[in-house]
Computed example of a mutant assay.
Amino acid sequence: MARKRKVGNLMGLAVLSTLVVQPRHRYDIAAQMKAWGKDADMGVKWGSLYTVVDNLAKHGFVEAVGSERDGARPERTIYRITAAGRAELSDWTRELISNPEPEQRRFVAGLSVVSALPPDEVVELLTLRITKLEKTIRDTRSELAALEGTLPRLFLIEEDYLLAMLAAEAEWARGLRDSLADGSFPDVEGWRRFHVDGFIPDHIIDMRDGGATDSQTPQD
């Protein structure tokens, strides 16, 4: 299990990854994170950048080493990563790479309550999702092709992973959609009937109630 970190926001990891290259002020940190695509990789919320940098400094992972002024703009504090920050960056990266953690995903949440919709509508919604996934896959492949030869493979690993995950999700969604559309999905007719007349087959009720009883109901 991942340990509780002093700065647990993944944006902190992104900030450390930019400062390990060279000292920067906060505006430059944000610009570099955008250029490297860290906002997409780590779900960055730009409004929290100042707070994250301050927290990193508070815990000794970064430190102020000077300031600079650009024309009439306010003075900007320049930060560099500390030895403790380098150790935190390495330790955090090891944890993320080696330890699989359950991730909160909106699609999984939707699947958990998908019975609230009739199966024919789910077919349409899955088709829409698949279309969007296929577009993202095409766009990602085009971006990778354009970058080929301009960046070392080392700096494109996360894009390779994203592409593989998108392709796997699209394939799984197609399988679910097709089984609903052709009627091979188990009990799809009962699911459809429920949305027509509200009838739930007894065996479905028994299975659901029995599962809840066995796993959740305290025994006397």
Rank of each mutant, 00 (worst) to 15 (best):
L13A: 05
V15Y: 05
V15A: 01
L16R: 10
S17L: 03
S17I: 01
S17D: 01
T18Y: 06
L19D: 00
L19C: 03
L19S: 04
V20R: 11
V21M: 08
Q22D: 13
Q22H: 12
Q22Y: 12
H25D: 09
H25I: 03
Y27L: 12
Y27G: 15
D28A: 02
I29P: 00
M33G: 04
M33C: 11
K34H: 10
A35C: 09
A35W: 04
A35I: 05
A35P: 07
W36A: 07
W36T: 08
W36H: 10
G37N: 14
K38I: 12
D39H: 07
D39Y: 01
A40N: 14
D41T: 09
D41Q: 09
G43R: 12
G43K: 12
G43N: 07
G43Y: 07
V44D: 02
V44C: 09
V44R: 03
K45H: 15
W46G: 10
G47N: 05
G47I: 08
S48E: 10
S48F: 04
Y50L: 08
Y50V: 09
T51V: 05
V52A: 00
N55F: 06
L56Y: 04
A57S: 12
H59E: 08
V62R: 00
V62W: 01
V62N: 01
E63A: 15
A64H: 11
V65I: 13
G66H: 12
G66A: 11
S67F: 09
E68S: 13
E68K: 13
R69M: 15
D70A: 15
D70Q: 11
D70G: 15
